[in-house]
Write a protein that binds this DNA or RNA. Sequence first.
DNA 1: CCTCCGGCGACAAACGTTTTAACAACGTTG
DNA 2: CAACGTTGTTAAAACGTTTGTCGCCGGAGG
Lengths: 334, 334
Amino acid sequence: MRTASIKEVAARAGVSPGTVSNVLNRPEKVAGETRERVEAAIRELGFVRHGSASTLRAGHSRTIGLSVIDIGNPFFTDVAAGVEDLASDRGYAVILGNSSGSRLKEERNLLVFAEQRVRGVLITPSGEDPNRLELLRDRGICVVLVDHPADRSGQCAVAVNDVTGGALAVGHLLSGGAGRLGYITGPAAIRQCKDRRRGAHQALAAAGRDPHELLEISMPAMTAKAGQEAAEKLLSDGALPDAIFCANDLLALGVLRGLLQAGVRVPGDVSLIGYDDIDFASASAVSLSSIRQPTYQLGRVATELLLDECDNPETHAHQQIMFQPDLVVRESTR
Amino acid sequence: MRTASIKEVAARAGVSPGTVSNVLNRPEKVAGETRERVEAAIRELGFVRHGSASTLRAGHSRTIGLSVIDIGNPFFTDVAAGVEDLASDRGYAVILGNSSGSRLKEERNLLVFAEQRVRGVLITPSGEDPNRLELLRDRGICVVLVDHPADRSGQCAVAVNDVTGGALAVGHLLSGGAGRLGYITGPAAIRQCKDRRRGAHQALAAAGRDPHELLEISMPAMTAKAGQEAAEKLLSDGALPDAIFCANDLLALGVLRGLLQAGVRVPGDVSLIGYDDIDFASASAVSLSSIRQPTYQLGRVATELLLDECDNPETHAHQQIMFQPDLVVRESTR
DNA sequence: CCTCCGGCGACAAACGTTTTAACAACGTTG
DNA sequence: CAACGTTGTTAAAACGTTTGTCGCCGGAGG
């Protein structure tokens, strides 16, 4: 019924509890014959170490917390897969927290992480407020920022260069001979949207064009529905650009649909490029050119940094890693 | 630096540790004035309960384990969102395990859950082997099966009726006047694929047609890429059905793309229906008819059952809940 | 023969909480 | 006034590990 304790294992193997603990944690410290006896007892009793007791005594756990903004977004899903894979390889469990963009939920998740005494936290912060993270650091919990630049020195962060990404996208459109250019984006407050716009401006400037000629439409959400509405607006305004850059693939898919329904040919009449290179970008009726981010890798590397900081606090050097995005050309751009 | 313990809080408030514990867990047991003093001390010291110590002493934790087959699949993502929302409302943390379809990883995840002494486990088993779950139940950890019928009585399970879903889909195609019918599916071993085919057969029989006339193409994966290959095969065989039912939306999106590229009109020449009603079903060039499953709800209800079993073991009655899927008609079917 | 040393285990003291039994203070009741 | 229930608090004993100290034993060196 109840799980056997280390004490019962010890009794069965004819050793002391401490020795069983040594077999579990420092097998090299215990003589071969004794070790085998203990291991046999463990198997026979179906012993499973009590993680809480271990955490309590050792002062640290084998879990990390992962707080994301929206687990329904393929971007975060890929990140989570990367985190989970590496953590699980290293024997760590991942506690998942989904903030849904709400400060309150994020705060609650961080509290849970603190109660669980997680070894470290990976977080894509939903706001710019660094204070709440202090709460964790004060308790000796390491923090690595994910898809967010470090808000101050002295911490690890991994991100993807969104400025470069924006420049890549618009550069590609310009090299295709685009005249009038459009940028369909999400809420102005979102850092990613701002950075990608900045990249677009840089590409225009580099081509000797005036950045201000970029026609920008800002939608309240970054969904396919919003994208379709944006396309309808463009059509009814009668100001259809030659080429459109969307701040993410969901928007782009919506725009694509809106254009096709109105009989606009893609890429014949309008070139279209998205961002993120989600799986569905290649599955749409006209496969979508996009900017690929190393999403899975983002999660993996963030976890790597976190575990290094936890396991080697003295030799660990904080790092801010910035990945570079790639251009993926498909049918939707010439 | 270190987090304050209950003892320090007690000292500051001038009470005993036991009283602090009472404030935390049974506030009604302690006099108003004392409670306020303790609460003030908690705030001032930034005290956060040590979850492991609590678990150790109380004998059970406030965490549940969630083991899914593929966190990259939108279906499981939605389930996870439902689980996370309810669990977090009830003060439970969710430990996420992704088995990636591998028995080994699943086993490892279950071991982690056992070590953490999770209160209960939600699992979409990747195989049909019920033994491993015994390991958990023997330790008094409740288990609820997700998107899987109960493999024996005496446990909770939530699922969606895939037979009904298959019948709905094919019934809809038939009511549109379809003549030749195709079913594009995944590996034969997958339960969902089998059940959906069974439903398709039932619908054919109900319409007075011979179930064997259903042209079936089984692909090794259930991805958009596989769907496109299936469409190409149909086209090269020159045996294009009037209507096609796909075992999931990813396959359907691939088929759609393959057909459109070949100049086949959808739904003009061929009607097409998918399964799952993922977000992208409505965002494709021709929006996709599909079978909607209450995915988020699935996760929520499973969690509800699990927590009920944990919190009221004596009054709890095991339940096998079977949801019914819905038909969603969009442009891809007449 | 005595000492020293290395290797292996045993012992016991924590870690921070929950919980039970006991207790003190204080009306209420017979 | 004694007996008694109520209410609020305390003291102390767990829970299952980890870990530092210590002791035992056998062999090597003096």
